[in-house]
Amino acid sequence: MEPANSGALEALLKRGELVESTSEMTPDYLRELKHTLLVSGDTELISAPAYYLAARKAPSVNAFMTGIAIIQDELAHAHIAYHILEELGESQEALIFKRDPKAFRYPYAFDVPLESWTELVVANAMYDQAGFCLLGDIHEHGSYGPWKRGLVKVMAEENFHLRNGRNWSKRISQAGGEAREELQRAVDWMFPLTVEWFGLPDNLKQHSTQLDYRLKGLTNDQLRQQWLSTGFRAHSMPTRSAGTSTIRAAGMRSSSGGASGGRATPRWSPSSRRASPSSRCAHEFLPAFSRRSGAPRLPAFSRRSGAP
């Protein structure tokens, strides 16, 4: 049975207007909106401990502080998504601190630890560029007013992360030698993981409710292609223009061509870099947010200690 305001919502979306209140939503729209917000909040939140681990290896105080500034932004972005969920009736406290670590929704990339400053700056150039494409799409096309407005801040700050990633990548590339080789290795393993970030290729996807509800404007392949062309390809990896760096996962791009219909996800195995990626994953960080006693922590602090 169609909810009472189904027609009204459809008309509102068709007019290109923004949804502002739960009274204008159908239960289906609310569910999709919450899911999209949750993925966004979780991804931003999980990026923080992942980046922190690498920021600890910053070569100087200036570099460390740049890392902290980026983490502060990511946490504030997570706060925006979780607070909107809170306004929609969820509990931020429960979502962050009381959820099973396995229930968090974020790209697989954050399950692979970033272990050096070089890996952090490549993550800034690649992962944050992916986030920029995805959130930029929601900022531009999204139908939920409060989120669209909240993303103004997010877009400005993600741009700063990209610049940090690009500037440092350039610097490391110019340093040459071992530093540059490490940069190349980071590009090699992070590239396919970022391709995967955008989800299933369009030809394997049955139907997108998110598109119907204008919770996003572009398809997975369109966004993936945008990532490949605007940010990553043109600017971020100067090693490539120097002719010594190659993207070894070119097959991934076939998904957007549609001809081969290759799935982005299973074709590349992260085991080429990590002996056992599943054993080292973001779940290690999550106890930091679930405040379980005795759980491993990064750093080894016990959250909430001293609280009544």
Partner: peptide, 21 residues
């Protein structure tokens, strides 16, 4: 934006830290 805090002091500290764009 908005912040959630137990009192005005912390709300001020959080607002200024969170919305520093």
């Amino acid at each position: 934006g908005s912040v959630v805090a137990p009192d005005d002091d912390l709300a001020m500290a959080y607002a200024r830290a969170t919305y520093d764009e």
